[in-house]
Simulated scan of single mutants.
Amino acid sequence: MKPYEEDNDIQDDELYEHYSFKAGKGQEPLRVDKFLMNFIENATRNKIQQAAKNGNIYVNGIVVKSNHRVKANDEVKVLFEHPPHEYLLTPENIPLDIVYEDDELLVVNKPAGMVVHPGHGNYSGTLINALIYHFENLPLNSNERPGLVHRIDKDTSGLLVVAKTEHALNHLSKQFFDKTSEREYIAIVWGNVDEDEGTVEGHIGRHPKNRLQMTVFPDGDQGKEAVTHYKVVERLGYVTVISCKLETGRTHQIRVHMKHIGHTLFNDERYGGEKILKGTTFTKYKQFVENCFKVLPRQALHAKTLGFEHPTTGKFLRFDSALPQDIVECIEKWRGYAQHVIDEE
Rank of each mutant, 00 (worst) to 15 (best):
A226F: 09
K224L: 13
N129G: 07
A187G: 01
E184K: 09
P208Q: 12
E144I: 14
I132K: 03
T215K: 06
I204Y: 04
K154Y: 06
V99A: 08
L96P: 03
E166A: 12
H207K: 10
S124T: 14
Y100V: 08
D196L: 09
N192Y: 05
T215Q: 10
L172T: 03
V161P: 04
Y185D: 01
H171R: 09
D178K: 14
V200Y: 02
D102Q: 12
N210P: 07
I98F: 11
L148C: 08
G220Y: 09
V189R: 00
K110Q: 06
N137I: 14
G220C: 10
F176A: 01
E195Q: 11
H134M: 08
Q213V: 11
R151C: 04
V193R: 00
A187D: 00
L160N: 04
R206S: 13
T180R: 00
D103Q: 15
Y133M: 07
F217N: 11
G223L: 07
H134V: 13
S124C: 14
M214E: 08
L172V: 05
G202N: 02
P146T: 06
T156E: 01
Y185F: 03
R183L: 03
K164S: 04
H120C: 14
T199V: 12
G121D: 07
I186E: 02
A163R: 02
V227T: 09
L105F: 03
E101H: 12
